[in-house]
């Protein structure tokens, strides 16, 4: 049985359809990434899975339980790392874990035996009595993650877990998430960072305008949707050069501002041509998940 199944999920807010028939399955023990531009329906999907709002139609099954009917009972087995830290500023680090654990009716003795391990997991072992206001952004996020583990959940929802963190803090979060996967947890994360999705997730789904537009393993999606090589061209005269050469030398060309993205199966001739130019600059790289994402969801701004 999958850890989570959504079928035909629809949800409107004030007449605007946020989800338009979303179908999705997440397997036990995998890290699944939910990607999509702002407003694609990612956070709504998480809220629906937690039973915090009801779908207009469609079915949700989480850990073999029907949602929202059994949402409260199912949340006992779920951990949630919210997008914005919601730690209790009036409590110390240890109290944050203890008091959150009590919401699950876990006895204090058991909580007190779990808390040292969770503090260690968060890298905050010697700071248990410190206040929340003294913590950096990365520490707060690690504590949020540790708090989500207080009930030893089978399934963990992470809403943009590394947004706003510096690279060091981000790498530590990634390392912790891999530890959780080794422990057999199922992770569902939403993210804007394609690198994050590519590194962590066994499978990802790209949703846009409330429907699923692609799902699969990151490498498979890259192979399936896009040419394997990318040459980014920029610098003086890039526009004129692209109009003249792009069509013959590349399979496909896209443009954002002053940069031209040339997608190609074999860019050898393209690179020879570019090297002859004195003013153009270029970057040759393998196609990434971000290229797939931009191809499928478009390059225009989503505000």
């Amino acid at each position: 049985m999958p850890a989570l199944t959504l079928s035909g999920l629809r949800k409107s807010y004030a007449g605007k359809e946020v989800l338009r028939g979303l179908d999705l399955s997440i397997y036990r023990g995998e890290c699944f990434g939910l990607l999509g531009p702002n407003g694609a329906g990612k956070t709504t999907t998480l809220r629906l899975c937690l039973g915090l709002t009801t779908p207009d139609s469609g079915n949700i099954t989480v850990l073999d339980q029907a949602i929202p009917m059994f949402a409260r009972q199912t949340r006992i087995r779920i951990g949630v790392v919210p997008q914005f830290d919601s730690l209790d500023p009036d409590f110390s680090i240890r109290e944050n874990l203890l008091i959150f654990g009590r919401y699950f009716d876990i006895p204090d003795a058991m909580l007190n035996s779990r808390i040292p391990d969770l503090l260690e997991f968060a890298g905050l072992s010697n700071r248990g009595d410190a206040g929340i206001r003294s913590l950096s952004g990365g520490m707060k996020r690690r504590l949020s993650l540790a708090r989500a583990l207080i009930n030893d959940p089978e399934l963990i929802f992470l809403d943009e877990p590394t947004t706003g963190l510096d690279p060091q803090a981000r790498h530590i979060i990634w390392e912790r998430l891999r530890q959780l996967l080794k422990m057999g947890k199922t992770l569902l994360l939403t993210t804007h960072f394609m690198e994050e999705a590519e590194r962590l997730c066994q499978r990802i789904a790209i949703i846009d305008h409330g429907t699923l537009i692609a799902v699969g393993e990151p490498q498979a999606l890259i192979g399936q949707h896009i040419e394997p090589q990318v040459v980014e061209v920029f610098g003086d005269g890039a526009a004129a050069w692209a109009t003249q050469h792009a069509a013959q030398l590349a399979d496909r060309c896209e443009n954002t501002g002053e940069t031209y993205f040339l997608y190609s199966r074999d860019p050898a001739a393209l690179i020879v041509e570019l090297e002859r130019s004195k003013t153009l600059r270029f970057l040759h790289r393998r196609a990434s998940l971000e290229d797939v994402f931009l191809k499928l969801t478009g390059r225009e701004l989503r505000d």
Partner: peptide, 14 residues
Amino acid sequence: IQKTWETLLNAPLT
């Protein structure tokens, strides 16, 4: 402001 209620709703509380 503090999102305390959101935290409560992520736990098995309604």
